[in-house]
Design a protein around this nucleic acid. Structure first.
Lengths: 122, 122
DNA sequence: CGGGATCCAGGATGATACTG
DNA sequence: CAGTATCATCCTGGATCCCG
């Protein structure tokens, strides 16, 4: 009875690789910040807690995936502006839904965590 | 000019902690599998590539966050069934949107990646 | 069947220093 | 300003063995 079709989410499905790329917290937040085009340090300042290294990596990954465009501003002084591509903009809605869900359900989740942790102690 | 409000996504906002909890690929896939209640090894079989350790951790985390319910089946033989709570079910829509987006845009993304990688070589 | 405990290696991360 | 390079560290995940 255990046929091949039991395996719904196969490892070799490209969607799995893509999920790996986008399903992380910083991508959600970076995409949110880039609703308007911004420069590197602008993004960094708005995402309290991110390090320059991780921000660079995240932006590179998003750029490679075609979700973010990188544009060097005619200088000096040096400047680089990041913005959403059409593909990146198409992610705004689903990612926004996640973020909104998070905000809406913060209270419920924190209550659940307290309940769980209390039960653990016993 | 650089006021405190520039900092949209503060580290101390609980939503950031919650995003940490849910924004990973396995949560998306586990929640998808649990559209119907399933037992541990059923889930594991359907999520090709996940190890038992990681699946356990993911389920525990989802349980702690109040998104998944764990129920020990009257045995023997032993059995444990996992199912979505109402909170978990409320995540189906936004997570499903992410998954659908992934499927729809696989081709575009892979093309972008090839383009990027080719440009890198040069 | 459904895990818990342990060990171990590799990748991610933070801090720091340097550069065009 | 917008990164790259390096190093020490930490944490995750894989593999394995065991138990009720």
């Amino acid at each position: 009875m255990a046929s091949k079709s039991d395996l719904i989410y196969r490892v070799d499905c490209p969607s799995r690789a893509i999920l790996d790329q986008i399903a992380d917290k910083w991508s959600v937040l970076v995409l949110a910040v880039l609703k308007e085009p911004r420069r590197f340090n602008e993004i960094k300042r708005r995402l309290e807690g991110i390090t320059q290294r991780v921000l660079t990596q995240t932006l590179r990954r998003l750029e490679r995936n075609g979700m973010v465009a990188r544009r060097v501003l005619p200088g000096p002084p040096l400047g680089v502006e990041y913005s959403l591509t059409p593909l990146g903009r198409s992610l705004e809605r689903p990612f926004g839904a996640i973020y909104d869900w998070t905000i809406e359900n913060m209270g419920v989740i924190q209550a659940a965590q307290r309940r769980y942790d209390r039960a653990e102690d016993a």
